[in-house]
Amino acid sequence: MDVICAGKRSITLKINGRERSLEVRPNEILLNMLRERFNLMGSKYGCGIGECGACTVLLNGRAVLSCQILAISVAGQEITTIEGISRGASHSSHAGTAPAGTLHPAGTLHPAGTLHPLQAAFIEEGAVQCGFCTPGMIISAKALLDKNPDPNNEQIKEAIRGNMCRCTGYTNIISAVKSAAKRMLKE
């Protein structure tokens, strides 16, 4: 135990907009730090070698694989996880049904200002199945839209190529990113 804990370092960084200070082990992986030290469970372990994308977070606005980054190396920088992109969403707003094509119009079933437009669009377009890849997928899409607010299909595919989804076939995910982009352009 002592060997593993040796050489702890103090770091300060920003996580989801809040400044945090903590001691980390030199071999501590960013994904594990987020999950174990801050209970930010939305980022997932899927492969451990940076292939599946389930651990994707934003590092200074850029999508990165948190299973491939040492916590110690992000000192002084800014991390955003899936928990940090919604706008105060809670469990209190309920989902329901609507005629085909008009599911969950923003502002009704999900009161405006709760979900990020990408999150709302993922629900509306049926882009979520098991949900395990979803947080990483939304983070990669957010990194894209922050840089390129009006991407075409190919640019979306390129942005999420490192995020594997085994349930959907990606079609609805791409539609969701496009639909969110449209909504964000109007806002």
């Binding site: 469970m41 999900h110 629900i123």
Partner: peptide, 15 residues
């Protein structure tokens, strides 16, 4: 119809 359930919302939130 196209039905969205509560679990999809928690899934996009990472909850």
């Amino acid at each position: 119809k196209r039905i969205g359930g509560l679990d999809e919302k928690d899934k996009v939130l990472g909850n």
